[in-house]
């Protein structure tokens, strides 16, 4: 393809090809601190291609695909090219990664132990992880947590943090301007802005941590902590995993080990400050 870049995030290498320069330039700027992978054999190929021949130039419209793709993926505007590239990489992980159990969860680490947070989009797990990453924790990832099948450790996948709508201002206030990407207005998921993880998160992106606490956060509710049984935790994590079924027995072994080893709580929180208090308290108490 005309423009390309090879990137490594955690254990995975992506070759991103694009019919346009802009998405590749945006990626290159925001991933500048990540390992240079030029000329590497990539785990996945991502393609940002025109939805039709004319759409390369006229109202450019991106079709996101690659080794793994969805036939009915919605086309995206070139103005959202960075988001398209990120979605293309996520798609490869979600559909194609087999070396770890992939959990749709954020994770942060302290003292060699990991806090894993999972929930629906909008639960606040991503924002919470981003903010904890600025408050003494190491950010391991805002979207995917990788559960190692042999060691049971959580491995990082510290891609750019994707901030949505109200979370944008909250986080932008806490980090330096050069770590923020362009504001992408009116995407299918609302306004989106990417944040580059701190240097230590990138430098230690192959370093795992034993899971010590599992939280199911829910933003926008009265503060409340509820215990979660192992069965419920297991079920919700299988739903939060895109490759549980594909991994078969090793996936079963890893996930049962996780839910029997780490305590789980559901937390409702009305604000970031309330969430920090709850996380600190539960971490001291349980982890």
């Amino acid at each position: 393809m005309r423009h390309e870049l090879t990137l490594r995030i955690g254990p995975a290498t992506f070759r991103v090809g694009s019919a346009w320069r802009a998405p590749i330039d945006a990626l290159a700027r925001l991933y500048a601190a990540y390992p240079d992978q030029r000329g590497a054999i990539a785990d996945f190929t991502v393609r940002l291609q025109p939805t039709s021949l004319a759409r390369r130039w006229v109202r450019p419209s991106i079709f996101i695909t690659g080794d793994h793709g969805l036939a009915d993926a919605a086309p995206m505007s070139l103005a959202h090219g960075l988001l398209a590239a990120e979605m293309g990489m996520n798609l490869q992980m979600a559909l194609g990664w087999r070396r770890h159990l992939l959990l749709h969860a954020s994770s942060v680490e302290k003292d060699g132990r990991a806090l894993v947070m999972t929930g629906e989009s909008g639960s606040g797990k991503s924002t919470l992880a981003a903010l904890l990453g600025e408050r003494g924790w190491r950010l391991m990832g805002d979207e995917f947590a990788l559960l190692d099948l042999d060691s049971g450790a959580i491995l990082p996948f510290p891609r750019l943090v994707s901030l949505k709508n109200r979370a944008i201002d909250v986080v932008a206030g806490a980090v330096a301007a050069d770590r923020m990407g362009p504001l992408l207005r009116a995407t299918a998921k609302g306004d989106i802005r990417h944040m580059v993880p701190r240097a230590d998160a990138v430098a230690r992106m192959t370093e795992g941590a034993a899971p010590a606490l599992l939280l199911f956060p829910r933003f926008g509710h009265q503060a409340e902590v509820r215990p979660v049984g192992q069965g419920e935790a297991f079920m919700r994590l299988t739903q939060a995993s895109t490759n549980y079924v594909a991994l078969g027995e090793p996936g079963f072994a890893a996930l049962t080990r996780f839910v029997t080893g780490a305590p789980a709580r559901a937390i409702d929180f009305p604000s970031g400050e309330a969430a920090f208090d709850m996380v600190d308290r539960l971490w001291d108490e349980l982890a």
């Binding site: 000329g39 590497a40 054999i41 990539a42 190929t45 080794d67 793994h68």
Partner: peptide, 14 residues
């Protein structure tokens, strides 16, 4: 070379 492998893997998946 690496380009060859990338092409081989992409074609094999496709």
């Amino acid at each position: 070379d690496a380009t060859g492998w990338n092409g081989l893997i992409a074609a094999a998946r496709a």
